[in-house]
């Protein structure tokens, strides 16, 4: 039942994709487009089989996925914690509000080269990059959530003699969950983006690095193979997070 719904849900977009790929393939085999620049679905498919058969791709997937997940986790935790400090202690928001808003407007990717210099071309720089990308998204959402906590609910618990900590645990935090959940899915995209860009800038492994080095030698097929893998990974992460979100927000209409 569920599977059927899922398939029906994706039916039209899958059909569309298939048609697009067929057109692409026909255009490539009839030499309508230059396969040197655009490759072809068949070539990409062959390349993917080689990548998986030799197992060459796995370490790169592991690195990119691992770094992105770490970035997502660190970014989410730090975003929630700091939003919470802002929400509860005025002094924090007074000092840091303008600074954070300023930083938010800054394209974070521009900081990449600095991180590479500070943290080296290893994994650390990418984790930092990815974390920062996620942090801002989660922080602003969670902070909005804290600010929007229903004062009536807080008062209700206060009249019951609840301590400050009890009010935070039972009202403030749960009422932020929808806000945090909303930022998680967007955050996953940012986490991967941060990682990939980090890998572009300086590294010796990961899907971003693969794309970069294949692009450097005009191996368009390899570039597109990596992008196909990334697409697949992203949609897996997204549907996983969607499920988590659904479970967390059962209590809403």
């Amino acid at each position: 039942m569920k599977m059927k719904n899922f398939i029906m849900d994706k039916f039209y977009s899958v059909i569309f994709m298939i048609i697009l790929i067929i057109i692409w393939q026909i255009a490539a085999s009839r030499q309508i487009i230059n396969t040197f620049f655009f490759s072809s679905p068949l070539e990409i498919f062959k390349d993917l089989i080689i990548l998986f058969k030799t197992g060459e791709i796995w370490p790169h997937i592991n690195v990119t996925l691992g770094v992105s997940i770490l970035g997502l986790v660190y970014g989410t935790i730090s975003g929630v914690v700091i939003a919470f400090l802002f929400g509860n202690f005025n002094i924090f928001s007074k000092i840091f509000d303008p600074i954070l808003v300023g930083l938010y407007g800054l394209p974070k990717l521009a900081l990449g080269p600095l991180f590479i210099i500070w943290f080296g071309i290893g994994l650390k720089a990418k984790i930092v990059m990815s974390t920062i990308m996620v942090f801002f998204l989660v922080f602003f959402n969670a902070y909005a959530g804290f600010k929007n906590t229903d004062i009536n609910l807080i008062d209700t618990l206060r009249t019951m003699g609840a301590s400050k900590l009890q009010i935070i645990m039972k009202v403030t935090l749960p009422s932020c969950v929808p806000w945090i959940a909303a930022s998680l899915r967007a955050g996953a995209g940012s986490a991967v983006m941060g990682t990939i860009v980090g890998e572009y800038l300086g590294s010796n492994q990961g899907l971003g690095w693969m794309v970069q080095s294949a692009g450097g030698v005009y191996n368009i097929t390899r570039v597109l193979s990596c992008i196909a893998i990334l697409l697949f990974l992203m949609s897996m992460i997204d549907s996983l997070l969607k499920n988590i979100e659904k479970r967390l927000l059962r209590w809403r209409q």
Binding site: N152, D155, T159, W251
Partner: peptide
């Protein structure tokens, strides 16, 4: 004080916690 005395408070607004 809230610590010493137990009171009940019912207002006009809907104050059930929606996630519980």
């Amino acid at each position: 004080t809230f610590n010493k005395h137990k009171i009940g408070y019912i207002s006009q607004s809907d104050t059930l916690l929606p996630w519980r």
